[in-house]
């Protein structure tokens, strides 16, 4: 008999908390980054102030479809998060994330803006560079748990990380791409230090920008949560691991310059594929499956 609190109330709460924790992390991100660059940086709650301010601004749009698509980006990101917290199919989660990405790209293609178009195309290239790694990670999780359901991770007696350390590191690449951090921030940087016209985000303003920002937080949280699930038996350790990777991605962001798209594709695919395949081969050889 499944406990209704555990199977419904908790996931709903978690889902509701996703944007808030995501926003907080963005604030921490900006603070830490500022300190790394010997600046003081904005208050930790600045991302929230920004979004509230954006939401109330005078609305300008590129066409009637742009706000719908921007909302789609947020909506499908939330839906992917829901799939995760309700412990449904991981492949479904991946498809939903892809749908969110396509909404963002479509919104950026919606106007005849050269900047936005280049950004949109480069966002698609980002998807091209992380999606294969993510599918392979999901298949690896299947090898370890013999299930595509998120629930499978929790029915495992030991942490996933012990079986799939390579996959965990490969997911780190996905995280950096999804957080739009250097060296993989080809479509648009989350920080102003890289560019003046903001790639895929160029044509968003006011409430459409607010929705995209929220969607971005949710997606970042989504990947971080998957990483936390690598230590499912004790989620506190899992959260610690995820935060560690979050910090690593900030360090990497501040060390590396942006790559060209070709090199980004080569890097994510080479490292991602090699790490995951080596991990899986080891898993098969050691009879872990």
């Amino acid at each position: 008999m499944p406990d209704p609190v555990l199977s419904y109330a908790l996931p709903v709460l978690l889902l509701a908390a996703f944007p808030f924790i995501g926003g907080l992390l963005r604030g921490i991100d900006r603070k830490i980054t500022a300190h790394m660059q010997s600046r003081i940086g904005p208050p930790v709650l600045q991302p929230f102030y920004d979004v509230i301010k954006l939401w109330g601004k005078k609305p300008f749009i590129t066409s009637q479809f742009q706000p719908v698509l921007a909302f789609g980006y947020l909506g499908f990101s939330l839906m992917a998060a829901a799939i995760l917290v309700f412990r449904l199919d991981l492949l479904l989660l991946l498809f939903t994330v892809a749908t969110a990405d396509v909404c963002l790209v479509a919104a950026s293609f919606n106007s005849k803006s050269p900047y936005s178009h280049i950004g949109g195309m480069r966002e698609l290239l980002s998807v091209l560079s992380y999606e294969p790694v993510m599918i392979m990670s999901i298949i690896s999780i299947y090898f370890a748990t013999r299930s595509f359901l998120v629930g499978g991770i929790f029915s495992l007696a030991y942490p996933l990380l012990l079986l799939l350390p390579g996959v965990f590191v490969a997911m780190g690449f996905v995280l950096i791409v999804e957080m739009k951090k250097s060296p993989f921030d080809i479509s648009a940087s989350m920080h102003a230090h890289q560019e003046i016209v903001r790639g895929v985000f160029t044509e968003f303003s006011g409430y459409t920008m607010a929705m995209v920002e929220l969607g971005h937080w949710v997606k970042m949280m989504l990947i971080l949560s998957i990483m936390a699930y690598f230590w499912a038996p004790n989620l506190l350790i899992g959260v610690g691991l995820a935060l560690l990777l979050f910090f690593v991605s900030l360090v990497v962001d501040n060390i590396y310059p942006r790559l060209t798209w070709q090199r980004m594709l080569k890097t994510t695919w080479t490292f991602g594929f090699t790490l995951i395949l080596a991990n899986l081969v080891a898993l098969f050889l050691l009879g872990g499956v």
Partner: peptide, 12 residues
């Protein structure tokens, strides 16, 4: 989209 609306502006 309907409730917030917005003025359609040319691209940047």
């Amino acid at each position: 989209a309907k409730s917030k609306g917005g003025v359609v502006k040319p691209p940047f």
